[in-house]
């Protein structure tokens, strides 16, 4: 018998409410601060709400960051290229690991899984040297070209999904006259849309949130992403204008939140399945 609503003890509910409030507080504090005039941010004890919301803080913060829209464009461009690149290439590779039988496949896949244990800081020095050698330092290429070479984690996710598609479908298509690539393109990809969307979302977040990559590969300010622009804002100003920093942080966070709420179900399902297999 499933426990009924009333059988949940009251302290469970209280604990949840308290924890929920605790988890929401930082968001509240961020937005509240972002709408305060500078002097109200410094008040002791702190004021929960601005006496009158300063909507101007947002345009001001954007101006303080410098070419905000250029940064936003750079971030979006990189996110777009990364999403396209990784979805396509990871799907291709996942197909090779799931829907084709070839000698050595499982050994290769094991190597792929093992590469998930190599974090970026471990390999960034030689990679930097590599990009330096081809003259890509100070350009966007280091930040998007690798996405076209498939991400191990995305391959893993997509492979799981591809494995669940019946083999018969590929064979029917083969008899219908499909080449291998066409089976991939016209049969498997359309059926894998939910998984592809998940990968696209994860990749968008990862690129949008990336800090270390842009930090080491970009040189000129007009190439900065929002993350770098925001860090520059944090660094340049003395006497820390917390209202501006909070406004700018909110702006950087906003697209992510919007995307999350638009795709919540896919997103949560995607996260949940990553841990279960």
């Amino acid at each position: 018998m499933k426990p009924t609503r009333s059988s949940v003890p009251w302290f469970t509910r209280v604990a949840l409410i308290l924890l929920g409030v605790l988890f929401l507080l930082p968001f509240f504090w961020m937005v509240s601060t972002s709408l305060k005039p500078l002097n109200e941010t410094m008040k002791l004890p702190p004021q929960w709400l601005p006496s009158s919301p300063q909507w101007n803080n947002y345009p001001d913060a954007m101006r303080a960051m410098g070419p905000f829209w250029l940064y936003a464009r750079n971030s979006l461009l990189l996110a777009f290229l990364n999403v396209i690149g990784t979805v396509f290439s990871s799907a291709l590779v996942a197909y090779g690991f799931s829907r084709l039988d070839w000698r050595g496949r499982d050994a290769c896949f094991f190597v792929l899984l093992a590469t998930m244990m190599i974090p970026f800081p471990v390999v960034m020095v030689p990679i930097y040297g590599l990009f330096k050698a081809v003259g890509w330092i100070g350009t966007f290429q280091p930040l998007w070209v690798p996405a076209f070479l498939a991400g191990a984690f995305n391959v893993f996710l997509l492979r799981q999904f591809f494995l669940s598609i019946p083999r018969d479908l590929s064979e029917a298509a083969r008899i219908d006259g499909c080449s291998e690539f066409r089976i991939f393109w016209q049969i498997i990809l359309p059926l894998a849309k939910p998984a592809l969307l998940t990968v696209a979302l994860f990749q968008f977040m990862a690129t949008w949130n990336d800090f270390l990559g842009p930090l080491i590969f970009l040189a000129r300010e007009n190439q900065y992403t929002l993350a770098l622009g925001l860090q520059a804002l944090q660094g340049t100003i003395s006497g820390t204008p917390w209202h501006h920093l909070m406004a700018a942080s909110t702006l950087v966070l906003l697209p992510v939140l919007v995307l999350f709420f638009l795709t919540q179900r896919t997103f949560i399902r995607g996260i949940a399945t990553t841990g279960l297999k």
Partner: peptide, 20 residues
Amino acid sequence: IPPKDRDIAMVFQNYALYPH
């Protein structure tokens, strides 16, 4: 000769219709 050039058609146990 690959399946598509054998000029045969096959009906599968689970139908194998393209769901999309």
